[in-house]
Design a protein around this nucleic acid. Sequence first.
DNA 1: TCTGGGGTCCTAGGACCC
DNA 2: TCTGGGGTCCTAGGACCC
Length: 408
Amino acid sequence: MALSKPRICCLDLDTFFVSVERLLDPSLQGKPVIVGGRPGQRGVVTAASYEVRALGVRSGMSLTAAYQLAPNAVYLPTRHGVYGTYAERVRELAQGYTPLSQVASIDEMFLDFSGCENLYARPEDADADATIDRVVRLLTDEIQTRIGLPASAGIATSRSVAKVASGRAKPRGVLLVAAGQEAAFLAPLPVRKFPGIGPVAERKLHALGLTTLGEVAAAPSGLLRRVFGAWTASIQRGLRGQGAHEIARERPAFQEHDPEGLWLGSISNERTFREDVRDPSCIAAMLCSLCERVCYRARKRGVRARTVTLKLRYADFQTLSRSRSITPTSSELELFPVVHELFVRARTRRRAIRLLGVALSNLGPYDAQLRLFDDDDAALHGAIDTLRKRFGYDALHLALSAERARRS
DNA sequence: TCTGGGGTCCTAGGACCC
DNA sequence: TCTGGGGTCCTAGGACCC
C-alpha cells in the first residue's frame, strides 16, 4: 500500500462559550448572546452569538463598543471552569475516532486521520476523501447529539489549511480541501485569514499592495521578508499547502521540558482595575494577591520559577514589564518582596495604574528534598493548600491581599 | 474599536565567559 | 591590554492566538 497523504482535521466548536451557556439555559436559544461581562464593565467580548455578529459584534471588541451595536443582547460573565468540563467531554469523544490528536485551545483540536481511510472505508464512498469527510461529519453530528454542542471541521493535508477550512465551514459544517487544491483554496481569501498573520502583518502587507493570500503567495521572497522576517519560508510553504502536518502526542505544556530539564511554559495572572488606581496600599494588595495566585498554581503543578516578571499598564495604556532571575521559588512570601521592588523600579511616571500582572517562567521541578531543612514555608504552604482544597481558594489570603479582597 | 486574561514564540542588545 | 569571535544567559518588548 502506498503511503497515504496526511489528512489533518481541525475540529472547532462554534461560538463555544455561547453554546455552553445555551445548553445550561435553553431560554437563550435563538437570542442575541454576548459572553464576556456586563456592559459598562472594563472588558471585552469573549464570545458572540451569530445573532450579534450580524450586528457587527466581534470577539475581542470592548463591551462598551458591543453595547453600542447590540444594546438588547443578553450579557453574561465568562465562566471558564464550566466551559472546561464540556471541552473535556468533546475531547474524549473525538479521541475515540483517531489515536493521534492535539489540543490547540479550549475550543479547538487537531485530529490526525492519516492512514485511517481503509479502517473507515465503506463501499458507497467514492474515494478516500469521501470516507474521511463522512467520518468527520459523523463526529460533528455525535458532538451535537450526545453533548449538545455545534462543531465545525476542516480537513486538509496541513494543520494551517485545515484550520482555515474549519473557519470557512462554520457554522455546523465540514469542509475538505483535497490534496493539490490548497493554494487555489487559499488564493481568494483576505490575508488575515491565515494563521500567523495578525493585524500588524496585515497592515504591512496592505501597504505593499497585497490583500489576498494568492497575492502573498505570488510575491517575491525578498518583499515578504520585510513583513515576515525569519518566518518567510514557513509562511510561503504554508500558502502552498506544504505546511506542517505533524500532530504532537497529547501532553500538557508544563510536562514538556527541554534538554536542560527546564519545564516549558509559564504561569501568569494579571488584573485590570475596575478604576485606575494610585493608592500605594491598593497597589501592594493587588501585587500580593497576584503573587499568591501564581504561586498557588505553581505549587499545584509541582514547579518552581527561576524568573519572575512584573507587568504594569498605566492609565494611558503604556505597558511595560520588568523581570528578574531569582532563586527558584513557588512561595508568595519570597516572591512578593521581589515583585514589589520590581514595581517600584518600573513605575517612573506619576500616572494612575490600569493593570498589574505577575508571571512565573523558567519553571523547574519542585524538589522538596532540597528545601525541607531551610524552608519552614513548605509546611505553611502545605497547610494553606490543603485548606484551600477543602474550602476553596478564597479561604485564606495573606493579610495584604485579604485587604484587597475585602475592598472589592 | 478607548482596548481582558491566559498563553506561546521570536527578536535583539548587553553582559559575561572562553 | 588599542582587541576577534562564538556561545549563552538575562532582560525588555512585541506579534500572535483563542
